[in-house]
Amino acid sequence: MEHLIWNIDPVLISFGAIKIHWYGVLFSAAILSGLQVMKWIYKTENIELGTLDTLLGYVVVGIIVGARLGHCFFYDPSYYFANPMKILAIWEGGLASHGGGLGVILAIGLYVKKYKVSYLWVLDRLAIGTALFGVFVRFANFINSEILGVQTNVPWAVVFARVDNVPRHPAQLYEAFAYLFIFIILIGLYKKFKSKSPNGLLLGTFLILAFTARFLIESVKQKQAAYSSEFILNTGQMLSIPFFIAGIVLVILALKQLKQPSTISNKK
């Protein structure tokens, strides 16, 4: 059976010693796309756009630091404890979405403290941009031939020639399309409620859908954690469970808000 042979160079353009990678371009596009979504939301709700620049800074730092530390400590802790300076070598690759999520949650805590807005109000709206962010990042992973799927002979299998000649599940694309679907769902929910959206509904929906998809797709991913596990579930699946549970709790609480005749505000 013939399969798609994927052998694209991860370097988009080279200028002597300067190299521009596809990953960097798509990561930047992911941030800019998320920013545009947030601008649209702020304009829709008549909120001062000036505060958005600060939010962007907090989120970007939270994503990068959290995702890096998540990769180091969730997936290969023994190596990084033995080589702590390698934690800073982000150019060598290694970002974990679970860690990035935690990083954003902590970074937003600083933002809401400064601007006196509801923590959940910010996270709800960021969830929309985060779903779109995930689309770009997973396409970047596909171009880089990383986060590989396990071997398969399904008609849509892909051979990542830069790695080996084995046809594999394009797990990166599965996640990219899952995030695109989630983005569409969240946009629909936001348009329905807008500023009256109950706190936690968008974030909870994102967590349920994103980590359900992640849990399922992990089953066709190649093992990423460097250490062995005696559990049936892999590291990515185990890390997905608490996020999924948190999403369930948030949606239940949000639905209770809908039944109460109260005014939902972005203020504490």
Rank of each mutant, 00 (worst) to 15 (best):
M38D: 01
S229Q: 12
T54D: 15
G100K: 00
Q222V: 07
A89G: 01
Y119H: 06
K86A: 15
Y190P: 02
I63S: 06
I18G: 02
N7P: 05
I64C: 06
G62D: 09
R214N: 13
D76Y: 14
I184C: 02
F215A: 01
A96Q: 04
S229I: 10
M238H: 00
G57F: 01
H3V: 07
P261I: 09
A246W: 02
A96E: 05
V249Q: 00
L88E: 03
F27Y: 14
E92L: 04
I217G: 04
S219K: 05
K221S: 10
G101N: 07
L4M: 11
P242A: 03
N153W: 00
I187N: 01
N153I: 01
Y115M: 12
H98R: 12
Y75M: 06
A210P: 08
N234M: 05
Y227Q: 10
T130D: 06
Q172L: 00
G236M: 06
P242I: 04
S97T: 07
P167K: 07
V166H: 04
K86R: 14
L123V: 09
L253E: 11
Y179P: 01
V122Q: 09
A131Y: 11
N7A: 14
V65Y: 03
R162V: 04
G34R: 11
I87T: 10
Y111L: 02
T152S: 12
A29R: 00
L207Q: 06
Q237E: 07
Q36I: 04
T54R: 07
K194I: 03
G149D: 02
P155E: 01
E146Y: 00
Y174F: 07
Y227G: 07
A17Y: 00
F177C: 04
V220C: 09
W91I: 01
Q172C: 10
T51Q: 14
T44Q: 09
S229L: 13
I18D: 02
L173P: 05
F81V: 11
W121S: 11
F139T: 09
N165G: 13
C72L: 10
I47E: 04
G129S: 14
R125Y: 07
A89L: 11
I128P: 13
G24E: 11
Q237N: 08
A127K: 14
F181S: 10
E92R: 07
I217C: 03
I208L: 09
S240R: 06
Y227F: 15
I208R: 06
A213Q: 02
N7T: 08
D76T: 12
K86D: 15
K19D: 11
V159P: 07
V249S: 01
L201V: 04
I264H: 12
Q237T: 09
G200R: 06
F183R: 10
N144H: 02
Q36S: 10
K267L: 13
T44N: 12
F136Q: 09
N141V: 08
V154S: 08
Y111K: 03
I245A: 05
S219G: 12
Y119A: 03
V150D: 00
A176S: 14
K268A: 15
I47G: 00
P242F: 01
F73Y: 14
A67K: 04
F160G: 04
N144W: 00
S219D: 05
F211A: 05
A178T: 03
Q224D: 10
S240Q: 04
F136C: 12
T130H: 10
E230Y: 14
E218W: 10
L32I: 15
G134I: 02
